[in-house]
Design a protein around this nucleic acid. Structure first.
Lengths: 194, 194, 194, 194
DNA sequence: GACTAACCGAGACGGTACGTCGTGTCTTAGT
DNA sequence: ACTAAGACACGACGTACCGTCTCGGTTAGTC
């Protein structure tokens, strides 16, 4: 889309990489808001302006860093032959929880940051939240086709409910383990109201 | 427990009240992190130290202010004769949503603050989150007794799911309206999985 | 002069004494401006207002404390039969220096305080500085009568010069020893300009 | 000695100049301890940290401001052909007094500040006190060569006595006028003890 | 091979907010 | 009337980050 710049010193990609790595490194040891921009650039051995050349805010940098590192996680839960929807959902949640047990603090910080900055909220929602929600919605719609999920139920609402549970537990510092994944899947697919 | 403090100039309760009122007033007009402590004490016409005498952080002050103002809100959803559980849940959620539509930004800021400060997280959880969660759990348990809610289902999980939905929507800036309240109640009480 | 107070709780003289003692105790261990009023009342186990009932400022308290403790020091240098003026001056200076070597820091602090507060300056000057200056002037005038000090010289100027030397050395943290006392006395009484 | 700083945004000398000017301006209108750092930076239109980048304390700033402004004052009293030592001393003292009559309050504040801060005392002594004292000592030594000042007298003691007189009078808020300068010069050079 | 323009490191700058400290006044209950 | 205790209004302090800015040096491509 953009014409390639034809002259001048090219961007040093290493600087950006170093910044992302430094940010993650510091975030694993300190709370999000105790990690100052000054600390990140010092850790990355990079100039302050170099960071601002690439990202507008600390949150943008961290979002990209986390995203890059983990974009493999939570692969789309595809319903293959011989797999029950419940089992697929279970697997998907286990993956997500597994990841959150490692990176939960950072994700919590990102959610918090999204509450304080509209622009960041939008990026975060578009890149993180929405894709994952749609994966579940798609799965539930598949389940409606296969008859595992009643057509009368609202996939969007149930999807929000599923994500809601672990947002709620994540933000309240409660455990996210395999048992929870199984319980959620059972509640979704396997119960009668009364 | 504490011996009553019998000496020294008595605490001026008006100062504390003024601070809470000032904080709420400013928070309705500005974003949480744009409301500085300096602005609050100026608005309240109170000395800086007087604020610090009462609360450790801005979040503690705001929490108490919001709590006091709204502790009537979301009255325990009691199941009275002739009321269906679903109807009671619906009403409760409508109340909560109604409140959140007015104060949602402040609550979002408090949730964000709780992610950044362990001590505040604990206070927030104990005073805000847990009581409301237990209201729902109690209601669901009642519903199990009346036969509206299957004994095989886990009230705690479903409660987390209910709160989860609106935390999720609140934090993602989505609408919380009466329709959602009804949809949640129907999903909880009225469906068959398949 | 004043009618004796006839009613009400009598003044607790112990409180005033305790304050003065506490002030001196703290001043021997800390710099003048590191000794806060809060620290003094805590050390004296006395209420804040009790201090303000007696003195307007910390400097006033300290001045009185130092004055009381040391009002014996530097007894008027009286010229008795068989004593030379030079010898009397020498003795006087030795006394003063001896005292200053113990309490010099406090006196320095008082001089500093006097530069910052007109009212205190006046008290300090009237109670401390002027009396001592006049002792020397009187001695020099006596010396003019006995012929030890030329009538053409100005006792006030020489007195200021004598005090000036040790103020200057005191404020510049230089030694005040017996040798200096002797040197001053010799310079005053025993030299020819050329 | 220092390697020239080759990197980073260069120091804005204007900021330092503005701070010094602002400090002097405010000090001529208010007492030293009524001039807050906040007022200085506001008057200078400069950031708070910029002040702290250059000086540790208000006293350091003021010392440098006064020093720069007046380092021409009290030029070394050189003994030229046809000038008597007494006359040179007289001129020197008149210069000094003239300056002190304009800036005396600031100098008094600096002397007071020096009593409360060891580090500042050392700077003040090295930059202000000692140079002026040595000028007089040198003059007196010259006078010993020319025979105006008896070899038996101690130039250091007499120098301390000269400075002492006007410190003493300065700190006690007494006049420093031409008559005093003449009297001091006469007392030093022109008297016999008896 | 010199030019050139975007890039980079370093770090000073104006600004805002912070939590702490000390002051002198006040308001109680108790002596 | 006085005390002990301590809360209060006020105001200054030095620190920490922020995002912007201004340098001198450093690259690759392009002429």
């Amino acid at each position: 889309m953009d014409k390639k710049r034809s002259t001048g010193r090219p961007v040093n990609t290493a600087a950006g990489t170093a910044l992302k790595a430094a940010a993650l490194r510091l975030l694993r040891e300190n709370a999000y808001d105790k990690v100052s921009i000054a600390a990140i650039i010092k850790e990355a051995n990079v100039a302050r302006q170099t960071l601002y050349n690439r990202w507008d805010t600390k949150a943008d940098l961290v979002l990209e860093a986390v995203f890059e590192q983990t974009h493999a996680y939570a692969a789309e839960p595809v319903l293959e032959a011989g797999q029950s929807c419940r089992w697929v959902l279970e697997r998907f949640l286990m993956d997500v929880f597994n990841h959150l047990n490692a990176e939960g603090d950072i994700v919590r910080a990102l959610i918090a940051a999204a509450q304080q900055d509209k622009a960041f909220h939008d990026t975060f929602y578009a890149n993180f939240v929405l894709p994952r929600e749609q994966m579940i919605i798609a799965l539930l719609q598949k389940a409606q086709e296969t008859g595992d999920f009643a057509p009368s139920r609202d996939p969007e609402l149930v999807s929000a409910s599923i994500h809601g549970i672990f947002w709620y537990r994540l933000l309240n510092q409660q455990v996210l383990d395999d048992k929870l994944a199984k319980d959620i899947a059972r509640e979704v697919f396997d119960h009668r109201a009364e």
